[in-house]
Design a protein around this nucleic acid. Structure first.
Lengths: 112, 112
DNA sequence: CCTATATTCAACACATCGGTTGATCAAGGG
DNA sequence: CCCTTGATCAACCGATGTGTTGAATATAGG
C-alpha cells in the first residue's frame, strides 16, 4: 500500500507541471519521441528527457524502442487510478452534502 | 485560460503530497479544524496550517469561521475539474487504442 | 481583565525541482 | 568506417517546497 501511495505521489506531482501536462495531452493523440515532444517547448531536449523520466517513474507513460528512437506511450490505466482516487472522496463529499440538504429540508418543514 | 492552468498546477501539485491527500480524505467525511487535521500527523500545527493554505490556494477547500476555529470544507467541484482534465486524455487514448485494435483485426482477416 | 486556546506570521535550514551546459553513448546512413 | 542523429548522463545553479522554532494575533471564557 505504501508503494501505491508513492505512485500516487509521483503521478499527481508529475501532473503539477504544465510542460508535463502538455506532454500528456500530446501523447493522448498518439506515441511520440523525445524530439517530437520537445518541439513545442522553448527548453532543451535534456530537460524534456527528464520530464519524460518523471512521467515514466510515475507510471503514466511507458517507452518502447524503434531504432535509435524511444517513443513514449500514454498508459490510460494510470490515469484511471488517479480519477478513481479523486472520485472516491468527491462522491463521499457529495453524498454528505445531499444528506445535509435533506436534514435541513425536514427541519424547515417542522418549523412551519 | 492561463488562470485555469495555474489552478490545475496548484491542484495537482497539492495532491502530490501524502499529508495533503490524507487531509482531503479526512475532509470528505466532514469539515475539520486545523487542530483536528493536525492530530494524525507527527508534524507541527504550523506545518499543517501551511498545507491548508496550499489546498485553499488550489481551490480544493474553503474555510469558514466558527469563533476562534477556522473549519475547512472540501470543494467537490474542484475535484471534479481534475477528473475532467484527466478523463479527456484518458478517453481519447482509449478510443485510439480501440481504433488501432480494429485496424489490426481487419489486417489479420485480409492476410488469411 | 487576564489567561488559555486556535491559528497564523516570520525567519531559518535543508531537500528537491527544473532548467542550463558539456560530455557521452548508441544506432543509422552515406 | 566515419559522421550524424536521438537520447541520456553529470555537474551545477537558482527557485520552490516542507519542515522547524519563536513570536504574534484573535477569540473564548472564568
Amino acid at each position: 500500500m505504501s508503494v501505491d501511495d508513492e505512485q500516487l505521489d509521483r503521478a499527481f506531482a508529475a501532473l503539477g507541471d504544465p510542460v508535463r501536462r502538455a506532454m500528456i495531452a500530446r501523447l493522448s493523440r498518439g506515441p511520440a519521441t523525445v524530439n517530437e515532444l520537445a518541439e513545442p517547448f522553448p527548453i532543451t531536449t535534456q530537460a524534456i528527457s527528464r520530464h519524460i523520466q518523471v512521467l515514466e517513474a510515475a507510471g503514466l507513460i511507458t517507452r518502447t524502442r524503434d531504432g535509435q528512437r524511444r517513443p513514449c506511450h500514454l498508459v490510460p490505466a494510470a490515469l484511471e487510478a488517479l480519477t478513481s482516487w479523486i472520485d472516491e472522496y468527491r462522491l463521499e463529499t457529495e453524498r454528505r452534502f445531499r444528506r445535509m440538504d435533506a436534514v435541513l429540508k425536514t427541519v424547515k418543514e417542522q418549523e412551519q
